[in-house]
């Protein structure tokens, strides 16, 4: 007996919502970024579930693209955050308040 598709989609939506909640409430950019990774993995789960259910390889293919792109984003993002850490000694998003008007 296999698990119905709906279970995967509901789980994926719950994970995605948790990720959104993390992005909106956390102050530390690293934790924000971890929440974004959670959102991406929620998407991966739903893509694989849909792909498996439809008997289509497209979902799995897109998942591999997502993983590759996420890795590229991490490398660029951490670089930017380290650059800030060098000048400010603190990377909380609260200190990113120089630009306003």
């Amino acid at each position: 007996m296999s698990i119905p598709l709906n279970y995967y989609i509901v789980l994926s939506m719950i994970l995605f919502s948790l990720g959104i909640a993390g992005v909106t409430t956390r102050r530390n950019p690293i934790l924000i970024f971890m929440s974004i990774e959670l959102m991406l993995n929620a998407v991966n789960l739903s893509l694989i579930a849909f792909g498996r259910y439809l008997g289509d390889a497209g979902g799995q293919m897109l998942t591999i693209f997502v993983m590759a792109v996420a890795a590229a984003e991490v490398s660029v993002g951490l670089g930017i955050l380290i650059a800030i850490f060098r000048t400010k000694d603190n990377v909380d998003v609260d200190v990113l308040n120089g630009l306003k008007g």
Partner: peptide, 16 residues
């Protein structure tokens, strides 16, 4: 620097 960090965090969020 701040512009880059803001753009990155929002952009990655929106990409998801």
């Amino acid at each position: 620097e701040e512009a880059g960090a803001k753009y990155f965090l929002m952009g990655a969020f929106v990409s998801a």
